[in-house]
């Protein structure tokens, strides 16, 4: 599949001019490899989780919508050498997660709570109420963009993704 992506992308990823010499070997690496990771994550989730659990669907839709935004960005980059604008990407992420979190807040499943526990303060819970929605959006979009900023050097992004992916899949199950 990687070879096929490389052929389809006429040589693959270009790299920035200010990239250190050591990393120039990455030129030509095909983009959209996240499609492979997403396939593995979604297939195993759909096969082995309890699909009656709404939290499972929240995670699946959130992952798939972020992947779709990433796909659009990469696809446009291949066509026009420019991805989608930062505000479009950011806006799309906020919109997707905002809709999901609002859905959870307005139609809460069993056991849902907006109480936030503070590390090291046992028994101290802050009930966020409606503020839980923007807080959840901040955490999810922030974590996603943290990985995005980490990406670029070998293994820096995939390391956290392997751990986060395993944790996410286990929590879905």
């Amino acid at each position: 599949m990687i070879a096929r992506l490389r052929v389809l992308q006429y040589g693959g990823e270009t790299i920035r001019e200010d990239t250190p010499e050591r990393h120039r070997a990455k030129a030509g690496t095909p983009s959209m490899g996240g499609f492979i990771i997403l396939t593995a994550l979604l297939v195993s989730t759909l096969l082995w989780t309890n699909l009656h659990n709404r939290y499972v669907w929240v995670l699946i839709v959130a992952t798939a919508s972020f992947a779709m935004i990433g796909f659009l960005d990469d696809y446009r980059k291949l066509r026009t050498r420019k991805g989608i604008l930062a505000k479009q990407k950011f806006g799309g992420q906020i919109l997707a997660v905002g809709a999901l979190m609002t859905w959870l807040y307005l139609w809460p499943p069993d056991g849902f709570t907006t109480a936030l526990s503070i590390p090291f303060f046992k028994g101290w819970l802050v009930t966020l109420g409606a503020l839980w929605v923007p807080f959840a959006v901040l955490v999810i979009v922030g974590a996603s963009n943290a990985v995005n900023l980490t990406d670029g050097l070998d293994g820096l992004a995939i390391g956290p993704i392997v751990m986060a992916g395993e944790l996410s899949r286990s929590s879905r199950i």
């Binding site: 599949m1 492979i36 593995a40 297939v43 082995w48 395993e166 899949r169 199950i173």
Partner: peptide, 22 residues
């Protein structure tokens, strides 16, 4: 059992990754 399904999903995920990446 959650642990059994997590292990099976782990195996499936790796198999998918390997087959997709050739």
């Amino acid at each position: 059992y959650i642990t059994f399904r997590a292990a099976m999903a782990h195996g499936d995920g790796h198999r998918d990754l390997r087959s997709c990446s050739g």
